[in-house]
Design a protein around this nucleic acid. Structure first.
Lengths: 196, 196
DNA sequence: ATCAAAGCGGACCGCCGGTCCGCATTGTAT
DNA sequence: ATACAATGCGGACCGGCGGTCCGCTTTGAT
């Protein structure tokens, strides 16, 4: 069972495609307006190379998204508190949601592009499953809202990329204000928030 | 200022298109797989008629969505309690969210088709603005969560069509269970919920 | 009955995601 | 160094969809 290593040019092209796609999605307004031919041209690569490496448009965007997501995923799975394991749930839940929010803010072009494919519901992806399961398990360890499963869905829904992008771009909410508002909402849901 | 009445055949065709589109979106799995030519054929109408009447694909879906939404909108704006005005906010807020949820459940094919256009963020639509403003104003009259604006966004996010469709179809949650879970979450956020 | 104008519809266009096949690059075995 | 598979490359090509155009039909007012 010999795992064949990819050729040098293949690896180089893959990296070039990632860089080009990231840049194009970042600077263009609507993700729809970035075509596969655009990405190929910007990466200095033939169109077929894109499809061979990633299958289809959705595959390319997904691969890029997952690559950018990996650091956060690592920090959550094996990093230090307050994000990593071993943190008390009432602390870890807000930390986790804050991390998700920041990621969505920093990578909204990618998140919007990913949902914009229209191909698959964002809820059937593997990474959503991961976030939801972790959050649900943490919520179950906190005396508070009874329905941990739905609460986890609802909290994650408050960090949806298009909502975040709307508040940040259309309504001009600064980053830290959004973080505060989400933290405050989370506290309310957990029952640890101040009531007026 | 004489408002020109549309011709008889124009009105008939418009109705036929609505019916055909509704049926097609309801029976097809992915809204993407319903093409404009399909709708035109099913309605017994030329393709150009669709575009003349509705501008483009998004316009057609939006018109259909708004038409189906109108009864609920009416019930909220001038109907009897608990949905209509004159209801105490702590009662009206859950009623409103329940109505939204039921609408999204009954018309998820349309809601998904509308978002699937990818053209415009669901947050820049006029009807979202309406729901959000009303909900925010009601929340401001309830002693509870401080940030009425964000809370309104978060509560509406919990009724997003793709989340609802995922829970109902993929996870097989029955209608009344979903309504209960959303009601319970709403109660938690409002501070009127039972804590375990 | 007449006739303009409003409306209709199928042929047509441009664009985009995705595929194909002849050619260049790579790594290896001699 | 050299020859040679095999792996990968890329531009030409295809099918299909959203959207437009123009000659024809329907409508309803005179």
């Amino acid at each position: 069972m010999t795992e064949r290593r990819p050729r040098k040019d293949a690896a180089r092209n893959r990296a070039a495609v990632f860089a080009a796609a990231d840049a194009l999605f970042a600077e263009c307004q609507s993700p729809q307006s970035v075509t596969m031919a655009d990405i190929a041209a910007a990466a200095g690569v033939g169109k077929a190379t894109l499809f061979r490496a990633f299958g289809d448009r959705t595959g390319l965007i997904r691969a890029l998204y997952e690559a950018r997501l990996e650091p956060i995923r690592n920090a959550v799975e094996e990093g230090p508190p307050p994000l990593g394991p071993g943190t008390p749930p009432p602390v870890r839940v807000p930390a986790l949601l804050d991390a998700v929010l920041c990621f969505k803010l920093d990578n909204r072009h990618l998140a919007l592009a990913l949902e914009g494919t229209g191909a698959d519901s964002p809820y059937r992806t593997e990474h959503y499953e991961r976030w939801h399961t972790l959050l649900r398990e943490l919520l179950e360890q906190i005396p508070g809202p009874a329905d941990a499963d739905f609460t986890a869905h609802a909290l994650l829904a408050a960090t949806r990329a298009d909502l975040v992008a709307y508040l940040a771009d259309e309504r001009g909410a600064p980053r830290d204000e959004l973080r505060d508002r989400l933290a405050s909402f989370t506290a309310t849901v957990l029952g640890t928030g101040a009531r007026q």
